[in-house]
Amino acid sequence: MSTLLTQTEASILTWHNVAAPNDPARRLAAELAFTIAAFEKLRGTLVFEDEPASFEAALQATKETAP
């Protein structure tokens, strides 16, 4: 069992009192390594915005204006 999976199972149990319900749950939890890698890849690529970063405002700003 990987260190990440061991830590993840312990963390979920501690913080949420949820136990791994089955083997696919453990396999998918181990795949969180890919999530960590994906977030690492993004570091430095997006800068902090001072303006409000509202998603609804972005929908309005980029919307279709003429059918």
């Binding site: 993840t8 979920i12 949420h16 696919p24």
Partner: peptide, 16 residues
């Protein structure tokens, strides 16, 4: 009570 693929996929959500 959930299908294996349902609970299995939700489980990692608690660790993010």
């Amino acid at each position: 009570a959930y299908g294996v693929h349902i609970s299995g996929r939700m489980y990692p959500g608690y660790a993010i």
